[in-house]
């Protein structure tokens, strides 16, 4: 699999990362090498094999619908890099 700088740009936008020119070139080369190595999986016959996301057959893990007290707002907000006494703040995000 050939990794292009355009593909790296696309993936970087999705990841909200902005590598500079030098990093971009380095990452492209590294990903190319890593992804090419990943291609060894193509040698494995997986025809008809169900993808396994949860390794153990745990199922139907459910919680009762009973209200528990919420956290104190100041406890949740005190880690905010920018906030006031009632909310987290970000630059304009509403259209």
């Amino acid at each position: 699999m050939k990794i292009t700088e355009e593909l790296v740009d696309y993936v970087a936008i999705l990841s909200r990362l902005k590598p500079d020119e030098e990093e971009r070139a380095r990452i492209t080369a590294e990903l190319e090498k890593i992804v090419s190595y990943m291609d060894v999986l193509n040698a494995l016959d997986t025809e008809g094999i169900e993808p396994l996301s949860h390794v153990f057959p745990v199922k139907n893990v459910l919680r009762e619908d009973a209200v528990e007290p919420s956290f104190l707002r100041e406890e949740l907000l005190k880690n905010a890099p920018v906030g006031d006494e009632e909310a987290f703040l970000v630059p304009k995000a509403v259209e």
Partner: peptide, 19 residues
């Protein structure tokens, strides 16, 4: 297990899961 009640002052129906 936070309440779904409508309204409420901002960020008062929250826990670390919600945030």
């Amino acid at each position: 297990s936070c309440t779904t009640e409508f309204g409420g002052a901002p960020n008062t129906h929250c826990c670390p899961v919600c945030t």
